[in-house]
Design a binder for these strands. Structure first.
Lengths: 258, 258
DNA sequence: CTTCATTACCGTACCCCCTACGGAAAGTGT
DNA sequence: ACACTTTCCGTAGGGGGTACGGTAATGAAG
């Protein structure tokens, strides 16, 4: 079978390479894409942990060890799943309009994939799989930022800032979805259940700011709404600040949304 | 032994409650604090996965199942570890100075605990353990924001925004530490290893913005430096934006740092 | 001092996971 | 029919979490 010597890149970029087209030997029953797609399907429905080697193999009606002929090990399978999902976004061709609406489209798309594949929230951001999907993602953000005319040294910084904010919010939402599935209660259910016990242990004396804000009605919105508010505030501040740092503002006036 | 009926709050708040002081029966060899402290110690040194029930028990020279007399199950142990660590910060009494320096102190402190306990990056942000440590954390941020005089409806939103940005950056850094430990290579090592293969698979045509930025020297800084730059840019923009939204600016002029 | 009630300790067993190894199986070409 | 190549996968070994039920250690009562 294929010899993976610690390298996952040929697998990530397998579609850029002509298939080896073997003539001899026992024909394979599956393709890598079958394995990756099944992993994604199981993870979508039952979470990342459920997408075990044994489970994916069973789903494909194949022995567990057969998968190791397609993929070096489970971590690599997960990398392939991540890149596959990132590559499934319809970001290209670049959205028309100014940079802001392009970023907003990116944000929408990011939230969408995290909602469809909430297990993404449990994969590492550092050292992502360097495959076509992930690069297309970066390219889109960089293209949007580049149109601003920022100094070169700031372009990637600004892109990382915006992407990190959006991904963080999407991950938080996805984490909430996972927890709702796992526990059967929503975030708001959960917080209000604890609310009952606040009376019992919460020490008013040592939490004056929190108490004051509570009494002033500063906690009336639900947890999910608060998270949304924070996301939108942060995004607005970051976009405004970056736009203000650019020499030539193409859009004048304040942003019409909100 | 103690009967946990699905409730972890009494464990989190155990220090606010007088010990039951049993007179009869076999005396316990351990305390919950022993178990939690050992869990933290193991996780600090070898990662969250290493802090298994079996391992923590061995460390305490006790049978695995003995731990279940102190803690309902492993997830609860981890919650207790998280709250313990959050509570170990020296945030109180509130730092002197304006709100900005208070937030910067919070940020420093957050980075410190994530560096000392990088496994925190692998614990959920949504639905954190509602214990004394986590509440003290929130209280500090709310107190700092409150001094700004923002409209009530915006206080918690601003606090969440800032806390989320800081925690996200601290988590990213911590994730890097975990990966360095696990793989033995730094982030920059890792990226430069991949760099060799860019020539092989990267398609210049479909990544014009990235290619242009590369040629302009926009990727000369290392991955960790880029992440730091992005963190600092984001923090500055968020703080500036929030300050600008407050009616009474106590500090006038631009911020002296940078 | 014995016995009992109470509490804590923990060995065993079951189920699930990942994966190294090596032999069996299923094709092609001769 | 045979060799050759490639794929399939059973077995086994090392982890992990935790339910169950028996055993050990104490204070109190007799």
């Amino acid at each position: 079978m294929t010899d993976f010597t610690g390298r996952i890149l040929p697998l990530l970029w397998r579609r850029s390479i002509p298939a080896p087209d073997r003539k001899t030997g026992r024909p394979a029953r599956l393709t890598i894409d079958d394995v990756v797609a099944t992993g994604i399907r199981v993870a979508d429905r039952e979470g990342l942990d459920a997408a075990s080697m044994a489970r994916v193999a069973t789903e494909l009606a194949v022995g567990t060890m057969t998968l190791y002929g397609y993929v070096p090990s489970r971590p690599e399978l997960i990398d392939l799943m991540v890149d596959e999902v990132l590559g499934s976004r319809d970001l290209l061709p670049p959205a028309p309009g100014d940079w802001r609406s392009r970023i907003l489209r990116y944000a929408e798309s990011t939230f969408t994939i995290y909602r469809e594949h909430p297990w993404l929230a449990r994969t590492s951001q550092q050292r992502p799989p360097i495959g076509p999907g992930m690069l297309a993602d970066r390219e889109y953000v960089l293209a949007a930022i580049s149109s601003l005319g920022l100094p070169t040294s700031m372009v990637n910084t600004a892109a990382l800032t915006i992407a990190a904010w959006i991904a963080g919010a999407a991950r938080n939402e996805a984490e909430g979805i996972l927890l709702r599935r796992a526990t059967g209660e929503t975030n708001d259910d959960w917080w209000s259940q604890r609310g009952e016990l606040w009376e019992k242990w919460f020490d008013v004396e040592s939490h004056p700011a929190m108490t004051a804000l509570w009494n002033a009605g500063g906690f009336t919105r639900g947890a999910d709404e608060q998270a949304r508010d924070a996301y939108e505030l942060g995004l607005k501040l970051l976009l405004d600040g970056i736009e203000a740092a650019s020499p030539a503002q193409q859009t004048s006036g304040t942003d019409p949304r909100r």
